[in-house]
Every structure is written in structure tokens, then in C-alpha cells.
């Protein structure tokens, strides 16, 4: 097997062009899946036998929470690759993830709080799941703050990558918090062993929105990655070529 594809993926000009070409292939399916999934979740899915219409918050809460964690994993792994193999593009991927992940962590916390009030009787509780998700937000903000503290991009990359990698330990804690501790938060109903704990009419819209959010993140990442690659690049010849295109 040839390794050329791997080397190409580490080459900024190649990545820049590839990202530009791929963006619409993720953005449009994402838009369709999100719109269709939210419509199905709001209108077609039956009300929950316990929570009535209130359960429909799941269609915005679960995808936001999923992205908040998934984006962190992408960020942490890219940061590790950047640190170990000193690949500039990997650091650029990590830096592109942070603002997206932070914003969806806020969405997960706010929508969760709006769900918690009618169902648990409180907007906030220092519960393991809620607290570990709040720590995730602080990790993102710390990462962004640390980057902003350096003028030199290379030093910012290395310092922030270290934080991102260490913060990865929080990811399993968030996921298993509802199993390890006695939590107000319900246990997973989709990502669990065995069948999902939901009828198809409720589950299908959720899966559509989950996939839609994931594709949306990829599209955002591709756009942000181009910006990060441009900011890092000093080779005039390909910059000139990239800007002409």
C-alpha cells in the first residue's frame, strides 16, 4: 500500500484545495437532514408517554451534546498527531474545532437546562453529567484563551495541543457519568448495548438530526481549516495560486 495519500493530507496546498472542493458535499446534505429531522421530530414523532410534548427538546439537545463531545475528540486526537509528528495541518484542524465545539457545548448546556426545569424541577444541579459537561466548556474556553495568549502560531499550537490532549480524560467521564454515579440525567437511549430504547417514529428523526449535525460540523471544519491553513502559510507561490482560485 502506498503512503502518498497520507503525505498529501499533510500538505497545506493539497488540503486547502481538497477542503474547498468537499465543503458543499457536506453542507447541503447537513442542511437537508437537519431541516427534515427537526420537522419530523416536532410534527411527526408521537408525544412521549411520560414527558408529553416536552421530550421534543431531545431533537436539539442530543445532537448538540453529541457534537460537543465528538468535536472534542477530533480536536484532542488532531492535537496529539500535531504534537507527535509535528504536522502543521493537524494543529490547524485542532484549532478549527475549538470554537465550534465550545458553541455546541453552550447549546447542550442551555437546551439541557431548559429540559431539566420542567422534568427535574431545576435549571441546574451539580450532577456528574452536568458538571463534567460544564468542565468540557471550560476546557474549550481554556484552549481558546491559551491560543489567544501567543503571538507566535507555532508556540500557540504546541501549548494548546498539550491542554487539548490532557483534557481528553474528561470525555469518558462525561459519557459514563450517568452509569458510574447516581445521576439525575437519564442513561443513554441510542448509544447503548442492544437496541435503542425508543420506538422508530421517535428514533428516526433523532438519527437524522444527529447525522445532520455531524455533517454540518465537517462542513464548518473544512471552511475553518482553509482559514487556519492560510494563516499559517508563508510560501508565496502557492498562496498566490490558492487566492486566484
Amino acid at each position: 500500500m502506498s503512503w502518498t495519500w497520507f503525505h498529501k493530507l499533510a500538505s497545506p496546498p493539497y488540503v486547502y484545495k481538497l477542503a474547498a472542493r468537499l465543503t458543499p458535499w457536506f453542507a447541503w446534505p447537513a442542511a437537508l437532514l437537519i431541516l427534515a429531522g427537526l420537522y419530523a421530530g416536532l410534527v411527526l414523532a408521537p408525544p412521549d408517554y411520560q414527558q408529553g410534548e416536552g421530550f421534543r427538546i431531545i431533537y436539539v439537545h442530543a445532537p448538540s451534546a453529541w457534537l460537543s463531545i465528538m468535536v472534542y475528540v477530533v480536536m484532542g486526537v488532531s492535537a496529539a498527531i500535531g504534537l507527535i509528528w509535528r504536522i502543521k495541518v493537524a494543529h490547524a484542524v485542532a484549532a478549527s474545532c475549538a470554537p465550534v465545539g465550545a458553541s455546541f457545548t453552550v447549546a447542550a448546556l442551555v437546551t439541557g437546562s431548559l429540559w431539566g426545569k420542567p422534568m427535574w424541577g431545576t435549571f441546574w444541579e451539580w450532577d456528574p453529567r452536568l458538571t463534567s459537561e460544564l468542565i468540557l466548556l471550560f476546557l474549550y474556553l481554556g484552549y481558546l484563551g491559551l491560543r489567544a495568549g501567543f503571538d507566535d502560531t507555532q508556540r500557540a499550537d504546541r501549548a494548546s495541543a498539550l491542554l487539548a490532549v490532557v483534557g481528553l480524560v474528561n470525555v469518558p467521564i462525561i459519557h459514563y457519568s450517568v452509569t458510574w454515579w447516581n445521576s439525575l440525567h437519564q442513561a443513554p437511549s441510542v448509544m447503548r448495548v442492544g437496541k435503542p430504547a425508543m420506538p422508530a417514529a421517535m428514533l428516526t428523526p433523532l438519527l437524522m438530526v444527529l447525522l445532520g449535525f455531524t455533517l454540518f460540523f465537517v462542513a464548518l471544519l473544512l471552511v475553518r481549516l482553509r482559514a487556519e491553513v492560510l494563516r499559517r502559510e508563508r510560501t508565496a507561490s502557492w498562496l498566490r495560486e490558492a487566492l486566484r482560485a
Binding site: 427537526l38 416536532l42 410534548e53 416536552g54 421534543r56 427538546i57 436539539v60 439537545h61 448538540s64 447549546a107 442551555v110 437546551t111 431548559l114 429540559w115 426545569k117 420542567p118
Partner: peptide, 9 residues
């Protein structure tokens, strides 16, 4: 609760 959650997202 439902509409603000959708609006925020």
C-alpha cells in the same frame, strides 16, 4: 421550554 431550546440551537 421547547421553543427557546430550538431557538438557541
Amino acid at each position: 421550554y421547547v421553543w427557546p431550546a430550538y431557538a438557541v440551537t
